[in-house]
């Protein structure tokens, strides 16, 4: 639900510049670098930036560390590769070696975006699938109950915390 908050002008304008740059880059990619329709691009980028500041005011968003995000993405692609290979191997086995179970994992990250990123990423990592987010626990379905789930979850939580600088 959008609600306006008292935000300092400096924070808002820095946020607007950053988001505007991201939207402009997206426009460039979608238009394949063609800037013939630049008035439309300008209006689109301005509109998108205004809408994003209205729906997600700069102050409600935890500060995101660019380096942390980049490291997270690289690590995530590797994990996602491992997850895909593992499940593909299981699917193609003569007798899939499944030992599934539902296991509760305590959430150490703050509510909001960090928890959402944690849940989403966990579902794309090897052997784990988020089933229910409730209170401070996440119910996880695992393909092999011997997997060191607590260790994997802690490692992911650390990576997510590094994306949001003040998440700890």
């Amino acid at each position: 639900m959008p609600h306006r908050q008292q935000t300092s002008h400096a924070t808002t304008s820095r946020s607007a510049l950053r988001r505007g740059a991201i939207f402009a880059l997206l426009w460039l990619a979608a238009a394949e670098g063609n800037l013939n329709a630049w008035p439309l691009a300008l209006a689109g980028v301005a509109g998108a930036t205004a809408a994003s500041l209205w729906l997600l005011p700069a102050k409600t968003l935890l500060p995101i560390s660019a380096g942390g995000l980049l490291r997270f993405l690289v690590w995530f692609v590797r994990q996602s590769l491992a997850g895909g290979i593992q499940v593909a191997g299981l699917a193609l086995q003569r007798q899939p070696a499944l030992r599934p179970a539902l296991i509760e994992v305590p959430l150490t990250l703050p509510p909001g975006l960090p928890r959402l990123l944690f849940t989403a990423a966990l579902s794309l990592m090897p052997g784990t699938l988020g089933v229910r987010l409730q209170g401070d626990t996440l119910l996880v379905h695992v393909l092999d109950r011997r997997q060191p789930l607590a260790d994997d979850a802690a490692r992911l939580a650390n990576r997510v915390a590094a994306v949001f600088r003040e998440a700890r």
Partner: peptide, 17 residues
């Protein structure tokens, strides 16, 4: 795969990769 959860594992990971 035998149930909905394991099938979700297959789709969420293999198809995305």
């Amino acid at each position: 795969f035998p149930d909905i959860y394991t099938r979700l594992h297959a789709l969420a990971k293999a198809d995305n990769l």
